[in-house]
């Protein structure tokens, strides 16, 4: 397994676990008092981002110590091609997420009664959470795409 493939595996597993737990925690905040839920959501987000950075740095440092070849670390033409292809997949998911979020914002702006209905769900910072969800999904699709191309070949 090449350095870049191992790197994709690390990012895929850490992103899925950390942000999977983050969204589970956010979902569990439904029904909590609004102010407390908002504070907790902010804390969860900071924790998830911080933990994600620490885990990525730690595992990539360990990986870097075991790979001493410059070509492996920088990646060759095959690594770059798989990266481009996986980026396209991830970008598609992100694009869909942004468009859906825009449609949601515009729809709620024109239908205030729907906005009241949605706020009853009491997910703190709903629009931000939806955008975050699509961003994380796009990252998971990107890393999965890389792993898929490495496993299957192209």
């Amino acid at each position: 397994m090449s350095f870049k493939e191992k790197s994709a595996w690390i990012s895929l597993i850490s992103t899925t676990c950390i942000f999977g737990y983050y969204f589970y925690s956010i979902f569990m905040l439904i029904g909590e008092p609004t102010e407390a839920a908002r504070e907790s959501a902010k804390d969860y987000l900071i924790q998830a981002v911080f933990l994600s950075i620490v885990v990525e740095i730690f595992f990539h440092a360990v990986l870097g110590l075991t790979s001493n070849k410059e070509t492996e670390i920088k990646g060759d033409e095959r690594d770059k091609m798989y990266e481009y292809k996986a980026n396209n997949l991830g970008y598609s998911v992100l694009g869909i997420g942004v468009i859906l979020s825009l449609v949601r914002i515009i729809t709620l702006e024109h239908n205030p009664t729907w906005a009241e209905h949605y706020s009853a769900a009491q997910i703190p910072m709903q629009t931000a959470q939806i955008l975050m969800l699509f961003f994380i999904l796009s990252e998971i699709v990107r890393f999965s795409g890389q792993v898929f191309y490495y496993r299957r070949g192209y």
Binding site: S2, E77, R78, G153
Partner: peptide, 24 residues
Amino acid sequence: ADLVGVTRQTIMAIEKGKYSPSLE
């Protein structure tokens, strides 16, 4: 791989027919 400037895994993928290299 060292002579060509790619990774060992790329040479392996080429041999297995899982990857077609660039002309270069």
